[in-house]
Design a protein around this nucleic acid. Sequence first.
DNA 1: AATGAATGAGTTTTCATTCAT
DNA 2: TATGAATGAAAACTCATTCAT
Lengths: 216, 216, 216, 216
Amino acid sequence: MAKRDRARSERNILKAARMEFAKSGYAGARVEKIGSRAKVSKGMIYHCFGSKDGLFVAVLEELYQRLNESNGELVINDCEPVEGIQRLTAHTFRYFAENPEFIILVNSENLMKGKHLKKSKTMREMFRPVYDKLDYLLKTGAEQGIFRKDVETTHFYISIVALGYFFLSNRYTLGVVFDSDLFSEDILDQRLQHIQEIVLGYLSNSSDQTSLLPSV
Amino acid sequence: MAKRDRARSERNILKAARMEFAKSGYAGARVEKIGSRAKVSKGMIYHCFGSKDGLFVAVLEELYQRLNESNGELVINDCEPVEGIQRLTAHTFRYFAENPEFIILVNSENLMKGKHLKKSKTMREMFRPVYDKLDYLLKTGAEQGIFRKDVETTHFYISIVALGYFFLSNRYTLGVVFDSDLFSEDILDQRLQHIQEIVLGYLSNSSDQTSLLPSV
Amino acid sequence: MAKRDRARSERNILKAARMEFAKSGYAGARVEKIGSRAKVSKGMIYHCFGSKDGLFVAVLEELYQRLNESNGELVINDCEPVEGIQRLTAHTFRYFAENPEFIILVNSENLMKGKHLKKSKTMREMFRPVYDKLDYLLKTGAEQGIFRKDVETTHFYISIVALGYFFLSNRYTLGVVFDSDLFSEDILDQRLQHIQEIVLGYLSNSSDQTSLLPSV
Amino acid sequence: MAKRDRARSERNILKAARMEFAKSGYAGARVEKIGSRAKVSKGMIYHCFGSKDGLFVAVLEELYQRLNESNGELVINDCEPVEGIQRLTAHTFRYFAENPEFIILVNSENLMKGKHLKKSKTMREMFRPVYDKLDYLLKTGAEQGIFRKDVETTHFYISIVALGYFFLSNRYTLGVVFDSDLFSEDILDQRLQHIQEIVLGYLSNSSDQTSLLPSV
DNA sequence: AATGAATGAGTTTTCATTCAT
DNA sequence: TATGAATGAAAACTCATTCAT
């Protein structure tokens, strides 16, 4: 039965916590429930993670870690720039769609002004690889004359994330405002298609033709 | 003295509640604190709004109402399409930047699966005017040959919102991930500039040149 | 029935807390029990006193206050010095004997390094009157040539307290060490008699005869 | 390595427990912390001492044992009575000053109504030697005509202890009440000096002169 | 023998809500 | 009406003790 296995217990707690936090946010989550989900006592949770706060940090870090690992699997080095961007965009969108916990946890964390994440040292390093990949794609595309040259990588990455994240995180209120169900698979595909158009529409080098924006 | 002035009390409570909910989210907000902020007794709050839930709904509706009024002030009917889009984009971004309560309340509501907003009948009607304005601009621009013709208005509006909202709502975690302070005025201007580029980059009619995306 | 009477509730809580803290010390006392003793809910205790700590401070201050009031009733201004000292000594001893809560609370507070009492501003002023009374008696007695002249008032007062307080506070362990029951009325009278002898034996002016101590 | 050395483990636990109990009293002490201080597992503590209670008894007995050994080193048989009393007084005071654990443990024990110490059989015998020494000094001094004749040995011994113990055990609250720092070396010397004066002042045979107390 | 994982009963604390005044 | 005293149910957290390994 694998009792008295600390590592196993911690994994179970972490998983249960991820689910509970995702269902109810930080304030709404119940330590008791996490315990029963994980089939351990409340005491064990405090033994392993110190506090509800500590557990939240652990869950949050694990989710960022996973996002990162997931990003690591994304091979775009030897792609055509366009295909690379498309893959990155799709991959990002799908990660959020398939890991709704991530969004809720991150929103909760922002509600709390990022106080937990600030403590995490590793976060800053974690995003370098994906940032570098994107930066490389943008540079290559620009050299090939197919991408505009003035793209600010950070803002652009934030935009790729924003276009998917916001749609998913705000599905409930958007559903009311636009009186439609945004939870079908079709809608997700549609949304991704739209995002791809925006992302590539922005990148497309229209320097030869009259741009809509006055050059600054 | 303003005693026995029910309307005045309600306004005070609403304002205090907006601040408290914005500071702490729904679950984190304290009825007690709202009372003391508004200088009324807790009993009064229950008298006027029935429950914490009821108060939250009232605050949320008021904020959407304001957004809508604010959108109403936006005159873009007789604009050039490009300028109209720019104004709408800037206006939307600035509303969020200047009303951080809105974002936190809406995030809280999404955390609760939109259960409060669903009850609101007026919401659906509220966004018609701004939707219609945007739709008109897109149509006009397309007729003038300067905008692409295949824009899905709803998704496009969601994107305009997303690019600003996400940046603002996730400033804390983004700040950690990119190790930078995202709370300066400069950064906001920069971000708006970037959003404008994306929005117009997407709209720009590049049908004559080779599009980056294969036509579907 | 006097319900909804805040002051009354606070008094009841304070009394119940005094008893509970005295029975078990700070760490051993149970907020739950204080509530049921006082016939109020636990919530009410927190409403009135903020925390277990806050309640402890209130109880402690009240007890010092009472000691002080009790000292105030002690009229010794127009006494002969000897009688004044005897009265003060007896009064101090009896206060401790009749208010065993005081001793336990003060011991608990010392265990916690005085962290609660430190916050109390009034404490310092509180003891001035009794100190002044004692000082006056010592001075008068010295002028009359019946008391020694070199008495350090503070140390002397501490000694008067010590001789009674220690006996009472350590009755259990002393009882084991000396294999006797120290809880009878007789023993208390005997102890007080002994303390009086010590206190006055010390004060007695033996300057004309050979003192046991070399003059410094 | 000292593995599997039961006696060594017990010594370590005892020392760690003494420190922990002294820092926080019985109720405030944590078995966990004692374990980590002693670098043994919690299980080991239960193995060696059965329970927290059992450990407390062991610590308490050890401390009384040490006090007794310390008293045993005190050679006063061939002293002048006055010097003998001075040595005993100073020795007692210094033991308490140098072993603050003793005071806190004994106070804790009194808070618990001496339930642990009662079980100890040896306690009663332990104090006979120092009692006998004191009794001998008092008798000799009385015979030499320098001490009063009516001294009750037990009460007198309790007083010698009280004058030092109380000052040390209540230093925190006394410090607040008299608004002064009672933790310096100077203050300790001053206090001991004062105690010596009281003790000898009381003993001094003033039968030739008018006593302050009416003979009973 | 020795560890430390695991527990559960108990503790302080919180807070939306009710209701006597 | 309006207040704020009072509650109770549930929350986070603690800790001596047990027991599988």
